[in-house]
Design a protein around this nucleic acid. Structure first.
Lengths: 258, 258
DNA sequence: TCACATTTGTCCGTATGTATC
DNA sequence: AGATACATACGGACAAATGTG
């Protein structure tokens, strides 16, 4: 009897939230699919019998939740597009910045998470996964031969491992881990980058070889050694001001050329 | 030379996005803190020299990103409030629904993640963490004595373990895991719930005892046994329609009493 | 190259619902 | 109960961007 749900309706759900929910449901249940174009804002507004402003608020929610993207111009408008993973990664970074989380914490968690994902990739990878990993290493080496950095390809290797684990939760978490690391890496001296990428690519090759021809233990050992820590000196997740600005705050106006 | 970043500016950053970013930066760098009240919409609009609609769009973004909440009425307005974890959890659920992820996948990932977090909690928990866990178990038993379900308290036990791991990344991930599980649990027959909660609370007590008085191995064994799987029959993450509705789609109007 | 149509982005004015005093 | 202050919502208008003829 005395369950929860007794004190639910603190405040009514706002109309633009309801509309966002309805459209979100249409996407989740497959009525609308990625690639589908939604009607224009005035069109949706008239169909829901609300004003344009309400629809715009709903569009902001759907955009921020990673369900749609909006394109400008004549053939533009709301487009169903799944960018949820990107949004999750962004919120992870925001959360860490908000809590002033340290790079040491990240290194610890990343090591644990990557190891789990690799174990599952080792157990569940099929032929197409191995092929994708091989193709990734090949592409990376091609780029390196042309003196290109190929940082993205090296990160992609880890994403492919997550995909090979056959567990979408691992895919989500690994995507966030990669995004956080990329956020750290920005600002790294470029001279060291190309060499670092080369070493990493070599290690990826050896890990892949061990996955196909070697033993499980060997593969896990190589992967363990592969997980170098992000140096603390590249830590740039905010953490300056102490925050004494309580109460109402004056905002700085933006400069907009009009 | 031929780096990435050549094809960056697909579309310019919209004014309401810039404003959302500026306010977000003020929060992240500590100029604005949780509990601070932002000026009213017209006030912010005049400070940025833009119209109210632009500010409203920015507010929607900040709200959806978990940085502010908006309160109605005279003393209302935008309020800095960190709900990022809640937003991340919501996006996790959305992502799983979008990919029609199975409950088996969730069980596998949850087991792995909870085990890691528990190992780190075991290694890093301090006196106050143990005390918080003990208090949680005590409160749960009190509620059970009064025939109340106390489901939330049992979930909270796992959140407290994540906190004890001293790693905020684990806190984030565990929060998401708990939220996903709660999403599954909705719809579970109520008769079995109260007994289930009682068993769970007993196991929590034993785990806590092992953490304080027992051996590390014993604690981990008990925790392993504690992680029962979410039965597949409670799986209710969508997955019906096949999605043949390509092209422009007619939306259903909402019924609004006016 | 030059209009033209379409759609989002933006602004203003006004009205309503809600919470505080 | 009434006044006040705020977000929410409506309608109309123009500017900016983009694709088309």
């Amino acid at each position: 009897m005395a369950d929860a749900k007794l004190f639910e309706p603190i405040h009514k759900r706002r109309p633009f939230e309801q509309i966002a929910d309805e459209i979100k449901t249409l996407i989740l249940d497959g009525t609308l699919n990625p690639g589908d174009k939604l009607p224009s804002e005035p069109e949706i507004a008239s169909q829901f019998h609300v004003g344009r402003q309400t629809i715009r608020d709903a569009m902001r929610i759907l955009e921020q939740s990673g369900f749609i993207s909006i394109e400008l111009g004549a053939k533009g408008g709301p487009l169903v597009k799944d960018t949820i993973l990107h949004r999750i990664s962004g919120l992870f970074i925001d959360a860490l910045k908000m809590r002033r989380s340290s790079v040491e914490e990240f290194n610890v968690a990343r090591t644990e998470l990557e190891n789990i994902v690799f174990r599952h990739a080792l157990a569940n990878a099929d032929r197409s996964d191995i092929e994708a990993l091989a193709e990734n290493v090949r592409k990376t080496k091609d780029k390196l031969a042309k003196k290109e950095a190929a940082w993205d390809e090296n990160v992609e290797f880890h994403r492919l491992l997550a995909k090979a684990s056959k567990n979408y939760l691992f895919v989500i978490v690994m995507e966030a881990v990669c995004a956080i690391q990329a956020d750290f890496i920005i600002g790294t001296p470029k001279e060291s980058t190309i060499d670092r990428v080369r070493v990493t690519a070599e290690e990826h090759q050896k890990i892949l070889d061990a996955m196909t021809a070697g033993t499980r233990e060997e593969a896990m050992r190589l992967f363990d050694e592969h997980l170098v820590e992000v140096p603390a000196k590249y830590f740039r997740l905010f953490g300056k001001k102490t925050g004494q600005g309580r109460g109402n705050v004056e905002l700085e106006p933006t400069k907009r050329g009009r």
